Amino acid sequence: MPGREQIKAGRATIHDVAALAGVSRQTVSRAINDKDEIDPETKERVLQAARTLGYRPSRFARGLRRRGAVTVGLVISHLTNPYFPEVAAGVLEVAKERGWQVIVAESHGSADAEIEALDTLSHQVDAIVGYFDSGDELLAEHLTGLPLVLLERGPDQTRFGSVGIDVTDGMRQAVAHLVAQGHERIGMLDGAPADNPSLRRLAFLDQIHAHNLPVDKGWVAWSSHDVAGGEVAMAELLDAHPDLTAVVGFNDLIAVGAIRTAQQRGLRVPDDIAVIGFDGLTLGELITPTLTSVRIDKGQVGRLAVDQVARMLAGQDPPTSDGAWVRPDLVVRASA
C-alpha cells in the first residue's frame, strides 16, 4: 500500500487513497463527498487515509459537486449534429428531475477522444452515459468500476448498461411504407462504409429481401453524417441507379441532403422520388417538403439511461429485457 513517503514525487491521487484504505475509487469519492449509503467505519477509514496522504480533491471536482448530489458524465459524438443535443436534452431533463448534475463531453466520433473523455470524466463523476464505439474490454480498462450506460447498443451487445434502438422495427416501418406506395427500386444512404456496415444498413437490406425487391448491396451508398454528405452520396446513387424511385437516409441530415440533390436535378419529391430519414429531428418540419422520418424518442432514451444509472448506483443489475429498448415510430410527412 502506498504511504506518504511513496508519493512525495507527486500529488496524492484518489487511487492512492483507495489503495491505502482498501476500497474502490468510487467508495473514496462517496466518503470524500459525504454521500449516503456508506458504512461509517469505512468512511472514517477512507478519510483517515486521505489525511495520511494529504489528499485533496481537485478544485474543479469540488466545484462540480453539491453535498449528496449525483454527477453523471454524458459523452456524445457531435454537438453540431442536432440529434445529439436532442438526446442530451433528454438526459439533462430527467437528471434535473432527480436533482442530479450532468457534465457533457464531445468525442467527435473519434475512438481516441472517447477514451480520453472516459479517462477525464471518471475522476469527476459517479456514472457515465454515452456513445462509445470501443469494445467492452477497452472501456473496462478505463472505467475503473464506474456504472456505465451505452447509448444505441442493445443489452445483447454489451455487459454494461445500455439503451438500444430497435433499428429493425424502424426500418421495417420505413420500407413497408414505401412498398405500400408502390416503390420497388429503393436505395439507401448509409452512414458507415461497406466494410463496416451500420445496423441500419443491415436492417434495410433484410427488409428489402423480405419484400423480394430487385435491390442488392450495390443500391447502398456511403455518406458522411451531414447534409453535404447526403448531397454527394445521393448524386452517386442516382448516377449508378437513375431508375431509383425512393431512398432511405441513415439519418435526417443525410436525407435532407438527398432531397436537395434530387431537387437540383429537377426531380420532384415525392412524385419522382420519395425520401425517408431516420431519427425524427424537429428540423424535418422546417424543410420543403417536410421530411418523413423514423422517429426516435430522444426523451425516452434519456429517461431509460438515467433510470439505469439510478439502478446501478443502488447496486442493482441493469435491465436485460425490453426495458432497455426504444422502439421508433414512422412519422409520415410530405417527402414520402
Score class of each variant (00 low, 15 high):
11 R>W: 01
211 H>K: 01
303 R>W: 05
153 R>K: 14
213 L>F: 08
169 D>Q: 11
179 V>D: 11
184 E>Y: 07
192 A>G: 11
246 A>W: 09
111 A>D: 15
203 A>P: 04
303 R>D: 00
83 Y>D: 02
25 R>T: 13
27 T>V: 14
57 P>E: 02
112 D>Y: 02
312 M>K: 12
211 H>E: 01
232 V>K: 14
76 I>E: 05
121 L>W: 01
239 D>E: 15
139 L>E: 04
3 G>E: 13
331 V>T: 10
121 L>P: 06
157 Q>W: 06
324 A>Y: 08
332 V>R: 13
64 L>R: 01
37 E>I: 10
303 R>S: 12
312 M>H: 02
130 G>E: 06
118 L>Y: 10
299 G>Q: 14
276 I>D: 00
205 L>Y: 01
145 G>P: 08
186 I>K: 05
234 M>H: 06
105 A>E: 13
99 G>C: 06
100 W>E: 03
34 D>H: 03
122 S>I: 07
262 A>C: 10
251 N>F: 01
267 L>A: 02
300 Q>H: 08
324 A>D: 00
249 G>N: 12
47 L>W: 04
59 R>A: 10
253 L>I: 12
65 R>Q: 12
312 M>I: 04
243 D>N: 15
124 Q>F: 09
41 E>P: 04
94 V>D: 07
62 R>I: 05
83 Y>V: 07
130 G>H: 00
127 A>C: 02
7 I>M: 01
263 Q>K: 13
165 I>W: 01
79 L>F: 10
138 L>E: 15
185 R>S: 14
81 N>Y: 05
